[in-house]
Simulated assay, not measured.
Amino acid sequence: MDTVTVNDIQLEYEIRGSGEPVLLISPVLPDGFVPLVAEPALSKHYQLIRYHKRGWCGSTHTPGPVGVADHAADALALLDRLGIDRVHVAGHSTGAAVAAQLAQDRPDRVVTVALLELTLLSVPAGEAFFAQVVPAFEAYADGEAERAVGLFLSVAAGMDRERCRTLLDARVPGSVMQSLKDADTLFGIELPALAEWRFGPDEAAAIRQPVLSVRGGNTQPLWVDVAAFLRATVPDVEDCVVDGVGHLLHIERSRPVAEALSRFLARHPITS
């Protein structure tokens, strides 16, 4: 990947394809968009920009706290350095939180927003989900990073640990090992920042751009609740349900996700 200096840090980034720019903001799997950018439905029609947020992979690791708004500022600075004025933004899980924040902060720069299972803990199912991941935090506190990461990814994916590891090794090779290296970011910075992030009805209503809300047909109650929240609060939102997948929807089945995203972007071009 290439590197660029923004906000006194270095960010790793990669650009693939040509056309209208689409900024992809990843969650706790920093290379989770790799299967999606390989799909012709997107790569043949759009300039796809994916990057590693600060604290992940080779991007600069800074002491916490690093909030969702900080990541949004980094994303904007990256666009500035790349000379991109207006852009489509897509994010998955915690990355979708950054996408939503960026859309609020700079509506003049963000044309559309695609939220792939936005993680929002303030919805009714948020408390139950947090209770499920408590053992992962406990394992991390005990110095068992491998067990902690495995537990967290398994709970989020809605799969047993072996199946989750097999899927990620096949579709995003090296991603689990990288998550182990970045465990301090995951448990010490990223998840606490998400818990502090405020995104209520007023913030959701402030997003005036067209929004695509994507969830898996087999996902967990947390993301079903989030999709319902977005339908009730975001002024211009379209729903998309991908059958047969859970929270790792674009990793499990990248083609239907890419096709849905491509159709959405085509309906809302930057040049219109």
Rank of each mutant, 00 (worst) to 15 (best):
T60P: 01
D142Y: 00
P201E: 06
V226F: 15
G91W: 10
V110S: 03
D105W: 07
Y140D: 07
R208W: 01
S122M: 10
Y13V: 02
I84L: 13
D169Y: 05
A260F: 09
A100W: 12
P27K: 00
E252T: 13
R198Y: 02
D202C: 00
A73Q: 08
V134I: 11
P210Q: 05
I25R: 03
R147G: 07
L102S: 04
L78Y: 07
A99R: 01
L48K: 06
V224K: 09
L78N: 05
A99F: 02
G246K: 05
D105I: 08
R81L: 03
R109E: 12
L48S: 04
A260K: 11
V4C: 05
N7T: 03
I49N: 02
G55P: 12
Q47N: 09
L102D: 03
E259N: 12
L36M: 07
A69I: 02
Q47H: 11
L120A: 15
R86I: 11
L48F: 08
E162Y: 02
P124Q: 03
G19Q: 05
H52E: 10
A195L: 14
A260T: 13
V98E: 04
P30V: 07
S59R: 06
L222G: 05
L23Y: 03
R215H: 11
Y140F: 15
P135K: 08
R255I: 00
L24V: 05
H71M: 05
S254L: 12
A131Y: 00
V134R: 14
D239R: 13
V133W: 09
L82T: 05
R163C: 00
E196Y: 01
A141Q: 15
A90G: 08
G55M: 08
S154V: 10
V245A: 14
L78I: 10
S179E: 14
D169F: 01
A139K: 12
E138R: 14
L116S: 10
Q47A: 14
D236V: 14
I25Y: 02
A75W: 07
G216L: 06
R54A: 06
S262D: 10
L194T: 08
V66Y: 14
A156R: 01
V111P: 00
D31P: 00
P269H: 04
R267I: 03
